[in-house]
Design a protein around this nucleic acid. Sequence first.
DNA 1: TTCCAGGCAGTAG
DNA 2: CTACTGCATGGA
Length: 304
Amino acid sequence: MQLVILRAMKTSHNTVQLDTPRIFSFEECLDFLDRGYDGCLYTIEEGAVLKPLCLDGERGLIKVVPIMDGLKVEQLSGELNLTKAARYVSDWFDLGRDLKPFYQLLNHHEQLSWMTTRYHGLRLMGIPDLFEALCWCVIGQQINLTFAYRLKRRLVETYGRFLTHNGQKHYLFPKPEILADVSIEELREMQFSRRKAEYITGIARQYAEGRLSKAALSKCSDSKQMLNRLTEIRGVGPWTANYVLMKALQQPDCITYGDTGLQSAVSSMLDLDRKPTKEEVDSFFAPFAGWESYLNIYLWRTLR
DNA sequence: TTCCAGGCAGTAG
DNA sequence: CTACTGCATGGA
């Protein structure tokens, strides 16, 4: 599989248009973003998404709306470089990928072919900011999603900057330099466990000191090397590493082993009355070599 | 009440 | 190496 070169066309001083691939549904993607949890880093508004960005130090608020065969990215406020904003949106919606091979595999799968119509155009919605993705994973470990989103909101609203537009605050995820200096006790008061507080501040320190970055990680030759590098980090196990590779680095071949939701979906597909073993998960994923990440997120989709 | 959520590190054997 | 345990909280 190969990532297509992004085509972005600047249509005015504050607007840029992106081509979308053939198998793409803004509705399905929006449905994922708005699936009933308390997301605090974007706003859904009348079929559009508003999102504040900070890219290489430049901040601004963008609005993403669907247009014919594309997306329009409009800067509502701030001073973003539109090319970088377009790149972010492309990563966010995984616009560079052609899903046709994945859909062919699904169509040939007796049990899963219905997905190509039911979830048609659902993309792997990314978390392009690696630091944010890592923190989000740590927060989400071993607790229910409702509580996880509550913790994230507290973190974001306490330590994150925000842009104000039409009287509404749009929060950015906190910077590593800020979280690096937060005390364990402060996070404990926000109901983080001591362990999670240690993990997050530890990751923030590595980031702030330049010992960890998306650019450095991208230099690894394949997913396996990146996985090894990530799991060296305290608080990052196989689940987090695979989740981050999939969501932040757009790696196509990741399986979130250990994920309760994934295990439940596979268990149901195999008609088991227990959790599947790693071997059973691997064998279920085997026909989808190179598309494991997409199968993973389509299986998550079945849980709603 | 007990169990378990989009896990992980630490410890014991 | 594998097995077991604590962690924070809240909904089932």
